[in-house]
């Protein structure tokens, strides 16, 4: 009997202690944010969405190689000699047209590994998190600002130039080879002449003997 009363008392007490705690919280400040109306301020450097400042990108592909899930897809075309793409704001010369720069945010795991290797600091995370889509393809972000016609044009030009260069190179190679051949021939001739002369000089004493 006494035990039951005692037990009842401890239960009662512990419940009331708990109630006291909840009471204190009830009159304390609320910690809940009413989300769509109120929003939490994300700190600087929060990793929520990738952004590429394409004007500063030199197309070095380092970010794509650092990504563990291969969600960065870059295609570059070498700029032809008649155009100057200028420099980035950090002073690095740009040598490539960025014909494709896609980031698949559906695949991205927000690890930040692509951000560190960038030589011009042009790929970074921005604190923006409301970008859900109805279709998965909407999460592939296209950062290249070249128009399709432009892409075709630069590709064609680059191909032409590459072909031209290749031709020139071949020409040069051929010329070099010819030159080499000529030199070789001359050398041989020279050597032949020499040996003839030597023959002559060595045969002279014989003649004298006779």
């Amino acid at each position: 009997m006494l035990n039951t009363v005692k037990e009842g008392w401890t239960t009662f007490k512990s419940i009331f202690t708990g109630m006291g705690v909840t009471m204190r919280h009830l009159f304390g400040p609320s910690v809940t944010l009413q989300y769509p109306d109120e929003k939490m301020e994300l700190p600087k450097g929060a990793r929520a969405k990738l952004y590429v400042n394409i004007d500063d990108c030199i197309g070095c592909n380092l970010c794509a190689r650092a990504c563990p899930v291969n969600c960065i897809d870059i295609e570059t075309v070498a700029a032809t000699s008649d155009v100057d793409l200028g420099k980035t704001s950090t002073g690095n010369p740009k040598r490539f047209w960025l014909t494709r720069f896609n980031i698949d945010m559906a695949k991205c795991m927000y690890c930040d590994l692509c951000v560190y290797p960038c030589p011009t600091d042009c790929i970074y995370m921005v604190p923006e998190y409301e970008y859900s889509e109805f279709d998965r393809s909407g999460l592939v972000y296209h950062f290249s600002n070249l128009k399709p016609e432009m892409v075709a044009e630069v590709k064609e030009k680059a191909e032409k130039e590459a072909a031209e260069k290749k031709r020139q190179k071949e020409e040069m190679m051929r010329k070099k080879a010819e030159e080499k051949k000529r030199k070789e021939l001359e050398k041989q001739k020279l050597e032949a002449n020499k040996s003839i002369k030597e023959d002559d000089s060595s045969s002279k004493p014989e003649n004298n003997d006779s």
């Binding site: 401890t10 239960t11 512990s14 202690t17 708990g18």
Partner: peptide
Amino acid sequence: KELNDLLSYNDI
């Protein structure tokens, strides 16, 4: 301490 009051030493 609050957690202890509320949960750890709660009889239930």
